[in-house]
Each structure stands twice: as structure tokens, then as C-alpha cells.
Write a protein that binds this DNA or RNA. Sequence first.
DNA 1: GGTTCCATGTAACGTGTTACATGATTTT
DNA 2: AAAATCATGTAACACGTTACATGGAACC
Lengths: 185, 185
Amino acid sequence: MALRNVILGFLEEPASGYDIKQSFEHSLSHIWAAESSQIYGTLRAMEKEGLLASETEKSNRGPDRRVYRRTLQGDKALEEWLAGDPELSPERLSVLCQIHFLSRARDPRKTTVFLERVRDSFIERLREYEALRAEEGKAKEGTVDVFFDTLALDLGLKTLQARIEWCEEALSRLAALDGADPANA
Amino acid sequence: MALRNVILGFLEEPASGYDIKQSFEHSLSHIWAAESSQIYGTLRAMEKEGLLASETEKSNRGPDRRVYRRTLQGDKALEEWLAGDPELSPERLSVLCQIHFLSRARDPRKTTVFLERVRDSFIERLREYEALRAEEGKAKEGTVDVFFDTLALDLGLKTLQARIEWCEEALSRLAALDGADPANA
DNA sequence: GGTTCCATGTAACGTGTTACATGATTTT
DNA sequence: AAAATCATGTAACACGTTACATGGAACC
């Protein structure tokens, strides 16, 4: 159901499936990048359900565009979503499963190597988020908009920082284990 | 593909679909709780692929059990998963989408109410994780096992703490905005 | 006799990805 | 003439959830 809601959110102005795909890439890329195939299908379904209405329109470049706008029912659905409960989806990070089973083997060496790689991946992603954040910040220096537009991105940054810290802590505790109890190696 | 790998991980000892379902509930519940229907289907598929082999066995209570064990090929697949790249799945938190579109409206009041609810949900989940953590810790006080067995859980704890902090920070910045610029209300 | 636990599954649906098909227009 | 961009879609597959069917054994 989330995709439907996000589409409703993007349709503040009438837009085509192609436009919505662009919106994903420009303003939600760090959270979600839906595929065109899914977007087009969902738009059709939403029109059938009465959430959207569409008209075709000549493009000045390429084939005709099917332009969608929210119906009153669509307006209402969006409002309900934004006034409804926070949707805390379960996380199900595969990497946690890997760590779980690795650590069952009680092998400090293997665990260390793996955690270092996890940390490096997190750091890499952090760099990407920081770059995005810098762009946003530069574009709207000192305005109230900076706060609102970086709200969601900042959660990602904070989360990654905490996870990198977790890696560092786990690695230093592992090093202590390995030193104190070399029989484990 | 993740479910296949987790099943391989659980099959350190031969086990039935039912047993695997229990394993999810006992040792991976905070990360993932797969449904029986999916587990049984996947077990069948994995046997067909040569990762597992099964025999039926009388149960001392209830119907016959189909007990699976890893084949050599299954051993190899598990090893490869644990030696392979960390799987950092994309997060796609619906709640971030909600925040994104709420904040577009530039409405400090609505955003405040929503963020308070998000914070409370995170706090609730944190309590659950802390309870799980306390159980683990109690069962294996002072042993090396505590470290390994709480590794994945601790990431969850750290993540939640960071997210709660993020809520608090955003809320206090919002309060400042609202005080300084009441024209926005 | 009813509830709970053991145990395996089927069917339908919802969501998401990958690969591909089609064809116009603009830029190099 | 080739490549990039605009624009919409179909088909097949993979993953996951929900609801339901079936039936035995143990416990109260």
C-alpha cells in the first residue's frame, strides 16, 4: 500500500508515470526507487479504484503522456495516510541474519573480518547520504526549508552513524576477546 | 534468497518445518518471523534444488514429521553466504515517506504531533528489545556467549536509541521554529 | 468434550524486480 | 547515423502474507 500513498503524495500537481519516476529519483532516492513498470501498473489500478483520474496529452517530445491527478477520494486517502499511525515496517536486515549465524560459530577471526566489511559498507553509504545532505543544505541555506527537507535524510544519517559505532564497539570487544582467550582461535 | 540462507543456518541439526518455525520465534524473532506456509514451500523447493534432503519420521504426538538436513551442496551454499558480501538491503521505511510528505506542507503543528507518535512507537519497540536483551544476558551471565548471542540484538538497540534521539532533536528544533515564527501556525 | 499443541500443507493475493518491446524526438 | 531522452507498457518471476483445510495426540 505504501507505493499508492507515495504516488498520492507526489501528485500535488498533475503528473505522468514518467514524471513520478523522476520524482522518486530526485526527492526520495535514498528511501525508495520504484521501477517504472510498477509505477505504471499501480497508476492504472489507482484510477480503477477511483483515487486518480487521467487524461492523455500530447508530448512535445516523444509519445503521448497520460497525465494523472488526484480525485477528491484521492485527496482524502492521502490526508488519512498522513494523519494515520506511523508505519514502522519491520526491518529484516539480511546482514543481521548473516551476523547471527556467523556468531554461532564462535569464531572471533571470521566475525572480525565480516564486521569490518559491514562497517566499511555503512561508511560508504554514509558518504553518499552526506553528499545528498550537502546538496540540500547548499540549495536552501539558512531557510526554514532546510529543516523540513532534510528531516528524513537526517534520520538515515543518524542511523548509519549509530551502526558504524556499533561495528567499532563490537570490533574492539572482539579484539579484547581474542587477546584474552587465544584458545578460541 | 534470504529465507533459503536462514533455513540453511538453522539446519545445523536435522529439523522439520515446524522446528524451523520455532527457531525463528526463539532466536530471530526481533529480526524476522517467517510464516509456516512460506517455510514449508521453501523447504520443498530447496530439496528439489539439491540443497536439502528429507525423510519422514513418526511423531510421538501429532502427524508424521518431514525432517530435513543439509546436503553437501547445502553446506557449501551456507558457507558461501557467510563468507560473501554483507547484504545491506535497502530500508524503505514507510514512516520516512510519511514524514517526507508531511514536511512538504511546512506545518510545524502537524509535524510535531506526528513525530511525537513516531518517538513513542520507537520507545515501545526499544522496551521490547531491552526485555529480550535482559533475558539473553541473564541466561548466560558473564560468558563469552553473551557477546555473540546479543550481537545482532545490540544493533537493533543502538539503532532505536539513535532514532529516538533524532525524534527529540527534531521536536526541539520544531518548538524553536514555532516560537520564533508564529506566522507559520 | 473442548482447548491447546503438533504438523503439513493449499490457494489467493499483494508487492516488487528484471527483462524486454515499442516507438518518437532531440542531440552529437 | 548513432545515442540519449521521452514515454508507456507487458510478461515472467521472486518474495511474502493471509486465510483456510486437515487431522492426530495430550491435557483439563
